[in-house]
Design a protein around this nucleic acid. Structure first.
Lengths: 146, 146
DNA sequence: TTTATATCAGACTCTTTTGTCTTAGATTAA
DNA sequence: TTAATCTAAGACAAAAGAGTCTGATATAAA
């Protein structure tokens, strides 16, 4: 079950995180990504194509082809990926679903949720993909993965 | 688009909030709730039945029948309702979807998300339905609703 | 007792999300 | 040039969430 982000978005974040760990100029095939991250092959393909069209990845066809980040990993934040895949609806709507809820008509948790939402926003903006990749490089993860 | 809670859960919270505003012992029909809260009649019925089976509401058939809270509104927290409808998956899983993510194998936002999740948890536990109802009683809402 | 009004319950449809399958087209290497 | 390997793209299927419809049953009031 997804919490805040769609599964597509989670997969996108995981894939980009993995790509941040590869060497400069090195391409990774969908097949390899799908196998290692345990993501359905063709589903992942669509997600990567979407990220490519948005400008975060570059792709190359044929043997030795694959995907790679189009810019330094430190320049891509989690916010960029979430925005590209899920959009930013989470930042604007009432967590309890009250349509009338707003600054003028706050629900009973409006202010508390506002703080939480800001913290979430800050988390997404402050973390870049290079940091994500570094966290995944810890030895424990090498064992847990593949 | 729902953010964290399913639409069912949002509807449940809205319905219980409304019931908290009614007089002690007064019953409200699904028809009235559905009309005022703009929730599909039969969909709301299922949600209320679920809350009844969980023990938060009491129901009565026939004319003058309807639903009411089974206990004082101040004894029902948002947490109770969310647990009854959506469950507590949000409290345990990695926000980025990494299966290996845990205290021993934290992802790059594990700690930050942990704080946000705790704040969310605290919000749900600290707010009860009586407070929700009171917030909705503000004059602005009377105008916005109906 | 009859009628109107409720809840109760389950089958059904619609939509969105997730995942699968197939074909086409590009590119590299033999 | 041919074969192998990859992305590109769209149709299709499965699953889950959301919402609808119908009939049964209970109950209060006329």
């Amino acid at each position: 079950m997804s919490i805040i982000f769609s599964r597509q978005c989670e997969y996108a974040l995981q894939a980009v995180t993995y790509l941040a760990r590869t060497k400069e100029g090195e391409k990774t095939s969908i097949r390899e990504l799908a196998r290692i991250l345990r993501i359905p092959h063709h589903f992942l393909a669509k997600i990567l194509q979407r990220l490519t069209r948005k400008g975060f990845l570059i792709s190359a066809k044929g043997p030795t082809g694959g995907f790679a980040l189009s810019m330094p990993a430190k320049d891509i934040t989690l916010f960029h990926i979430v925005d590209a895949i899920d959009g930013l609806a989470f930042a604007n709507s009432c967590v309890l679903g009250f349509q009338e809820c707003s600054g003028k008509h706050p629900c009973a948790v409006h202010d508390q949720w506002g703080e939480i939402r800001d913290a979430l926003y800050g988390m997404l903006v402050s973390r870049n993909v290079a940091q994500m990749g570094a966290a995944m490089k810890k030895p424990e993860y090498e064992a847990a993965g593949n």
